[in-house]
Computed example of a mutant assay.
Amino acid sequence: MLNLSALTTWVIDKSSRFFIDIAHAMAYLKTVLKNVITKPFEFQEFLKQCYQIGNKSIGLVSITGLIVGLVLTIQSRPPLVDFGAVAMLPGMVAISIIREMGPVITALICAGKIGSSMGAELGSMRVSKQIDAMEVSNTNPINFLVVPRVLAATTMIPLLTLYADAIGIFGSWLGINIKDNITIALFLNQAFTQVDFMDIFPAVIKSFFFGAVIGLVGCYKGYHAGRGTESVGVAANSAVVTSSLLLIIVDLIAVQITDLL
């Protein structure tokens, strides 16, 4: 028999921990922002992190984007055939991918790949006392370890999103050609005739926030990992879960703001 009291207590406990965690992350964001303008800026480390983020994610983003475009097209075609509106399919799929599917799916993939990697890497440095050694030697670990990673994630997620959009639209063209025969030029003309500036601009802007969330949460969880070796795995897992939830919340807020414009 379901114990409503125990369930309510569990939900309240998990919710309170989540919001407390977010409050601590926001306080951590203030520290990170202060260090962004603090010299020296580790430009080489920033470039290294940009390369690693792109290199780790581009393969999975490519496969996922292609499959999303294919599936969305194949699933959407039959209802449009019934209404005699197959010509609207490229535009509908392009808008769906650019507005929502591309940014959100790319961000969730990167939360799993990049967020967990940052959490595990910084967590292992905390466990092995490398961060403590940097603090003792009067080296600012946030300036060297955290700021480049957060800025790199904020920079690379929008680029990966645009790449995923392009791959998804290409996958849509492949999906259409399973049943029909349409050239890529005609497909792109039909697709982008329906797309306007307000479809692209808000999606790009919110992808910057997605990147910042992934970088900040991943670094926060790793930087504040516990002392035991098991805390590395906890930090990586917690980084994925928390950043994924925050991405959905940020997307909800972004959609509401876009709807008002």
Rank of each mutant, 00 (worst) to 15 (best):
M1E: 11
M1L: 13
W10T: 14
V11Y: 09
K14Q: 14
S15F: 04
F18R: 06
F19M: 13
A23G: 11
A23E: 05
M26S: 12
M26K: 08
V36R: 01
T38Q: 15
K39Y: 13
F43Q: 03
L47Y: 03
G54V: 12
G54K: 11
I63T: 12
T64R: 01
G65H: 00
G69I: 05
V71C: 08
I74Q: 09
S76A: 15
V81Q: 14
D82E: 13
F83M: 14
G84L: 05
A87K: 08
M88E: 15
P90Y: 09
M92K: 09
E100P: 02
G102S: 09
P103K: 04
V104K: 01
V104F: 04
L108R: 02
I109K: 02
A111I: 03
I114G: 06
G119Q: 06
G119W: 02
E121C: 01
V127M: 07
E135V: 00
V136T: 11
I142F: 05
I142R: 05
N143V: 11
V146Y: 06
V146H: 08
V147F: 14
P148C: 08
T154R: 10
L159N: 09
A164K: 02
D165M: 01
F170H: 04
S172P: 04
W173I: 08
D180Q: 13
D180V: 00
A185Y: 13
A185C: 05
L186P: 06
F187P: 07
A191I: 08
A191G: 12
A191K: 06
Q194W: 12
Q194P: 01
F197K: 12
I200V: 13
A203D: 06
K206E: 11
F210L: 07
G211K: 07
A212G: 13
I214P: 01
I214H: 02
V217I: 15
K221R: 11
G226K: 11
G226W: 04
A235S: 14
V240A: 12
V241D: 03
L245V: 09
I257W: 10
T258M: 11
L260W: 09
L261E: 01
